[in-house]
């Protein structure tokens, strides 16, 4: 992307904008952490950041390098144990937004972070596995996924369901007894996908400036549908870009 910002920066800014001030957000490391910290530095100063390492209300002034970065515990409202995070905070439905990344995601928003190729016992590529994601995807009131859009990552059906989106389509979450509403948005480096309310299939409902439908089709592994008139997302403001780059610079400086 031109005009002085990258598509990754646009993606992070779009994800930050999706977070509402005053809500609680269960944050994975990497892209979700960058976006939620950007939100807190811009329009959502009262966003409650919860990391699975046991910090509630972390307020880091630089990007944490891992979910166990000391700065999270030092700035948190409360530091608790791992069983408490999952059992007392996530499981009863106290978390507004679960914010996840993905290695592979399908048209129903199911996430695979377990294996690619071969079978489970003999995988071609062994990915890290589930971490906290299955229960974040199940029990957060809603879920936002942030992932770069490529043909390899965006597949018709995932090879292994690590975390459930809409399963096989309408009615699956209810049948499984999952209490959260499921994925609300997939935010990529091309735009934003939202689930069709009738089919639960993710469709491209917003595009970043200068992104063509052909590019989206080339980088999606299923026959992707578009909203009748996709919204064109405003580029990052200088305030957003400055805040994001300050965070990134502090991350580099502390490496």
């Amino acid at each position: 992307m031109s005009d002085g910002y990258t598509s990754d920066e646009m993606m992070t800014v779009a994800a930050a904008r999706a977070l509402t001030d005053g809500t609680s957000c269960f944050v994975g490391i990497g892209l979700p952490s960058a976006a939620s910290n950007l939100a807190r530095a811009t329009h959502a100063p009262n966003l409650v950041l919860i990391y699975e390492s046991g910090t509630i209300g972390a307020k880091p002034d630089r990007l944490p390098l891992s979910i166990g970065d000391g700065i999270l515990a030092e700035t948190a409202d409360a530091v608790i144990t791992v069983p408490e995070i999952f059992n007392y905070w996530l499981q009863p439905g106290r978390i507004d937004v679960g914010f996840l990344g993905a290695a592979q995601i399908d048209k129903f928003g199911n996430i695979n972070t377990t294996i690619v190729g071969g079978d489970y016992a003999h995988p071609k590529v062994r990915l890290p596995g589930a971490g906290g994601a299955p229960e974040i995807a199940a029990s957060s009131k809603e879920v936002i996924v942030i992932v770069r859009q490529t043909r390899r990552a965006f597949v018709e059906r995932v090879e292994f369901i690590t975390s459930v989106g809409f399963g096989d389509g309408p009615g699956t979450r209810e049948k499984l007894g999952l209490r959260g509403k499921g994925p609300r948005q997939i935010i990529t480096d091309l735009g934003i996908l939202t689930p069709d309310p009738r089919t639960c299939e993710f469709t491209m409902t917003a595009l970043f400036e200068g992104v063509s439908r052909d590019t989206v089709r080339e980088r999606t592994g299923w026959d992707i549908q578009f909203a009748a008139a996709p919204e064109i997302i405003a580029p990052p403001t200088s305030h957003e870009l400055t805040a994001l780059r300050t965070f990134k610079a502090s991350e580099k400086a502390s490496e």
Partner: peptide, 13 residues
């Protein structure tokens, strides 16, 4: 006991 794993491949393997 927990609310978890429902619908995931982990419950199968």
């Amino acid at each position: 006991v927990l609310r978890g794993y429902a619908g995931t491949g982990l419950a199968e393997v």
